[in-house]
Design a protein around this nucleic acid. Structure first.
Lengths: 183, 183
DNA sequence: GAAATTAGTGATTGACCAATAACTTGGCGC
DNA sequence: GCGCCAAGTTATTGGTCAATCACTAATTTC
């Protein structure tokens, strides 16, 4: 049961990704995260200075995993066209783990909220993560600027349809080329 | 000051669109909406049965306006290619009124939350609105399924970049063809 | 101009929630 | 086997929020 602070922080982040993905920033109580970890609610505040900091850690982790998924997909592939195709296919893995895509949606929404409230720092941090993902994916796929735009545009549509819960066999998925939108 | 319930409901919806767009569902208090309207908080519950119902009304209004913006853009145009281009340009109008695009983001995020909590009704309602928008835009532009997919994919990328607050002159806007991302 | 209807308010409540503070428990070195 | 530090808890607090209830004021109707 008892573990080092670093190990505990790690498991808290994992729980936070799931909870924040499912219920959003304001909809998630620190109590819910603590319960999922199996730890008391106040102890979270020993591991993270605030709820916001915990959310940021979850978001950072999420973006790292998304990036890692794409980079892993191109490993060992040399042909540029093949690499781009492999990254497109990698979306299947992301869709399979709902949390990573849903937490992205919550991140976009929460960032807009933070900025409307005058908090510029959150926006800067999120944009930095996003630009890093963009550039990494673009470089890994040897994409032109236009190709990268199209790639991410498709990704955002997938995110959106998934968030709304369109089932995998719905006709709106047809032009997209990745099945698995449901549940 | 005093007005009919219907007129008041109308002004409440307008206020709700702005507030929910800026602060999200859970981040917006009914007090904040009431204050913007200039009415007492309990009176909102005479006009709408619950906060959720008010949110749904705001979302419905938002989607109607988005749809109307696109349909208005093609008025008087006959050439199919011209109509598609006009709808693409119409995004400039939507970006100009931040609320409509940001409320969409909040809608996606909140729909995901509702579904994670077992509320299937919200998801169904939102999907119906979305399919209606999709079909209307597709019909108005005489688009193929693939063209519609590309059109909406681009739209979702615009939404996302806007939510994150990328300024209009940021390089990520380059491949998109609509300026006006910032504040 | 009185009666009835409709618009709107003030006070309150019970639940929830982030964060703090003060305390306890468990393992490790020696 | 004891002392010490890190892991973890219980209790609490100040604040917020959706929703209800009982009430008042304006408008319409006859």
């Amino acid at each position: 049961m008892r573990m080092s602070a670093d190990e505990r922080r790690e498991s808290v982040i994992r729980a936070a990704v799931i909870e924040f993905a499912d219920r959003g920033y304001n909809g998630t109580s620190t109590q819910a995260i603590a319960a999922r970890v199996g730890v008391s609610q106040p102890y979270l505040f020993r591991l993270f200075p605030s709820k916001r900091a915990l959310f940021e850690a979850a978001v950072r982790r999420c973006m790292e995993e998304v990036k890692a998924t794409f980079l892993k997909a191109v490993e060992g592939l040399d042909d540029p066209a093949e690499r781009v195709a492999a990254m497109g296919d990698a979306y299947v893995d992301l869709v399979a783990d709902r949390s990573l895509l849903l937490l992205q949606m919550q991140m976009y929404a929460s960032t807009a909220v933070a900025q409307a409230q005058g908090d510029a720092e959150v926006g800067e941090a999120v944009r930095a993560l996003w630009v890093d993902l963009w550039d990494s994916v673009r470089a890994a796929g040897g994409m032109s600027a236009q190709e990268a735009t199209d790639f991410f545009a498709r990704g955002m549509l997938i995110n959106t349809l998934l968030a709304m819960g369109f089932p995998p066999d719905h006709r709106l998925w047809e032009g997209i080329g990745v099945k698995g939108g449901g549940a």
